[in-house]
Write a protein that binds this DNA or RNA. Sequence first.
DNA 1: TTGAAAGCGCTAACAC
DNA 2: GTGTTAGCGCTTTCAA
Lengths: 340, 340
Amino acid sequence: MKSRTVTPKPRLKMADIAKMAGVSTSTVSRALADNPLIPLPLRERIVALARAQGYVVNQQARGLRLQRTNTINVVIPLGHDKDQLISDPFFLEMVGRLADQITLRGYEVLLTKVMSPTPGWLERIIQSNRSDGVLVIGQSDQHQALNAVADSYAPLVVWGGDVPDRHYCTVGVDSVAGARLAVEHLLKLGRRRIAFLGLPEAPEVLLRRQGYLEALAAAGIPAEPALTAPAHFNAEPELEGIHHLLSSGVTFDAVFAASDVIALGAIRAMTEAGLRTPEDVSVVGFDDVTVAQYSWPPLTTIRQDLDRGAREMVELLFQRIEGKTTTSVFMAPELVVRQT
Amino acid sequence: MKSRTVTPKPRLKMADIAKMAGVSTSTVSRALADNPLIPLPLRERIVALARAQGYVVNQQARGLRLQRTNTINVVIPLGHDKDQLISDPFFLEMVGRLADQITLRGYEVLLTKVMSPTPGWLERIIQSNRSDGVLVIGQSDQHQALNAVADSYAPLVVWGGDVPDRHYCTVGVDSVAGARLAVEHLLKLGRRRIAFLGLPEAPEVLLRRQGYLEALAAAGIPAEPALTAPAHFNAEPELEGIHHLLSSGVTFDAVFAASDVIALGAIRAMTEAGLRTPEDVSVVGFDDVTVAQYSWPPLTTIRQDLDRGAREMVELLFQRIEGKTTTSVFMAPELVVRQT
DNA sequence: TTGAAAGCGCTAACAC
DNA sequence: GTGTTAGCGCTTTCAA
């Protein structure tokens, strides 16, 4: 369909409404802000007029004057995994929940994807004055960058792991404990040669690997370096990890993957290679993304409570915006046993 | 961890940089904009100084002056389905792809969820001056609202169906054709009693039902009202559609669902009721969401090319921002035969 | 080549 | 109660 010609409406400004109402802009401004200084009848008349005319306060001007934006910036740094799209299910589910929570509080959501973090990327986001607070989803490999701003910028909350020497407020799941849960489950199943799949550039992955090693040590099983293979967070072309493992000739009877997406990719690759899950190889993922429960076989995984996580992040952020001191939150992970 | 006390950095303004450089703000402004009026050495000196000081132009002030925001507003109206979260996979995947495309063009993404559209919701979004253009994902039941602004506001593109009397520029998939594809596939499978699942308040669903009826008519099969059951877009508690069908005693040997999420929910409900897919009941969904290929059995569905859809939407939007006239795009749907 | 000054649209301190 | 006015931080016209 050819779109018809558009005749733009002139943008009304407060002065226009003031003129129509026969008052000054201050009065309109106060009336629209429900300021009791303006007598109720007049206030109502002005509000009605503004409504009728379709007038809405210019947020840009208002923001400049008030030095606030009514906006929260949700940032996804993709440093560790250059071509990972926002399309990754974990990030997307997190974004959705954060957006729900932020909207609930009457704030707007600014969504920023940082493709290849260049030095100062976070400072630039903060200094650009586009938001009243920043929520970062995942530390990626940007721990230093986060620390760098944490001491001078309060309204910042990060989703991630409890890495040492962390100056910023964090919400996350205890990755080490989660990984131990996963590996202990595999050990209980009688598995002994357990592979770890994950690219250890993101701190979360490192922590999960640490939990993996701890669980093995606790069971008296020596860790075998050949059983750890790198895997990017996204599944499709980056199945090098599992392929590498498969072609290396190393034998293994279980896989603990640093994320569900990696786990799902691994299952697919193994199936193609003639290995059955869970008969030949047991698999445990991490995240409990929506796909995990619909996949076949339904994926056994470590659940991160994203609903609660999003609520906590937003709650902490608003506390910090108000100048309060906050305490980081690490939630207990939960093993969800399904069929892999 | 207790977060340490934060000592906020004073926010630098352009005047500060100007003072340090010993020039006026005009010069700094021009230098940072790479204006050739400023001799290169001076320009470089100022840019370097700004970098070193971590100065970034205040976008709020810049926007007010320039009357632009460098931001695209991605809007999700949830009129037809009050409690549908942004968490719905289809919306989320669309948001991710749109964000990717918008970011690629150097614009910011403002994400707005409209919970219960009140009259004038879209006008308010537009008039608030927070973005240079609006992308609406799905018509929901807001066709009239979209039409209402389309004649006076150009930079608007909607993802949705080709409904009659549509004034706004749209990108979408030919829902009628897609539905026909789905039903023809089921007919080819020998199915004759095909149920339709979907809440016909959104135009897309209506179109899909229309295609369903057309395909049945073409095959000389009378449509049976009892075989159409309402279903919300989200799966979990809203399985009334399939449950209603199951408890009504109507017999059916196939289901065409208006979305993958509905299809997945239906399969689950039927499995619980002792009906096997695809042995007893064949199922075809719509969307080809990521879960569809991981689910078990892998879902046969009508594919919407979201990657291309997102690219088209953003491309058309930027053309409209530049004042060009655009033509709506409806892509050919594709039947993806998997195992249901 | 550079700077002074106006103004984007709004809010609020201050004056009446 | 209401209006006048200053100013948020920036860009750009105009003048030098």
